[in-house]
Design a binder for these strands. Structure first.
Lengths: 105, 105
DNA sequence: ATCGTTCATCGTAAATATACGATAATTAAA
DNA sequence: TTTAATTATCGTATATTTACGATGAACGAT
């Protein structure tokens, strides 16, 4: 494609699409679950629990952070990631809105 | 990458990831909304309402159909698409479950 | 039988995603 | 001040996604 046409839609639809994209890999869904279940949330702990290399996990974390689904806080030589509940709550709200429009459920 | 590692996760996480992927482009979200709002749902009507070519829209429809979010029924030379409420209801249920795990909302 | 309409598929190009190892940057510890 | 540990980034390879025009297949109408 010469260029993407994703900008030619409403901000709302684009935001939902971006959030959905962030959730479109099982590793990233898994990461969100891990961050919820663990007290500690440093990268190493996440890598341990996934069948992926450290660099790949780092990339997945970057994508989740990019849409603000998670936050990362530097803690010495480590980085502690955690869920961003504000974004997640907004995502749930917007998703519910979408489903209320397109589905009788 | 030599090969994808998406199979090394739970069926549940993979299914959620696949549904999310289907929703990861604003055109596809728009299509679902159009299918809900219109009585008629032939491809031409959808193409009219999107800034994309017929072949591109056809590809997006294929992706939505692939995960059973929509059904297509042949009607003479036309194809009539509609929302698959069963899949959508399941998606809503599984998404709610995910959010209940990862978010206090 | 031919023609026009409708839609999917093919071929293709460019962008993005996925994955890894290697390396750089940062900090704590020895 | 080296060293070890931790994580991000770079470089790279391959796969997938997005987009389009062209073509083909199916059907109704003439």
């Amino acid at each position: 494609m010469a260029f993407s046409k994703k900008e030619e839609f409403t901000k709302e639809d684009m935001w939902l699409a971006d959030i959905s994209k962030a959730l479109s890999h099982p590793a990233r869904i898994r990461i969100l679950k891990i961050l919820t279940s663990m007290n500690s949330c440093m990268v190493g702990n996440i890598v341990e629990q996934l069948p992926l290399s450290q660099s790949t996990v780092s990339q997945h974390l970057k994508e989740l952070k990019h849409v603000n689904l998670i936050d990362g806080e530097i803690d010495g030589p480590r980085v502690c990631y955690c869920i961003n509940n504000k974004t997640l709550a907004r995502a749930k709200k917007e998703m519910d809105k979408l489903y209320s429009i397109i589905c009788d459920c």
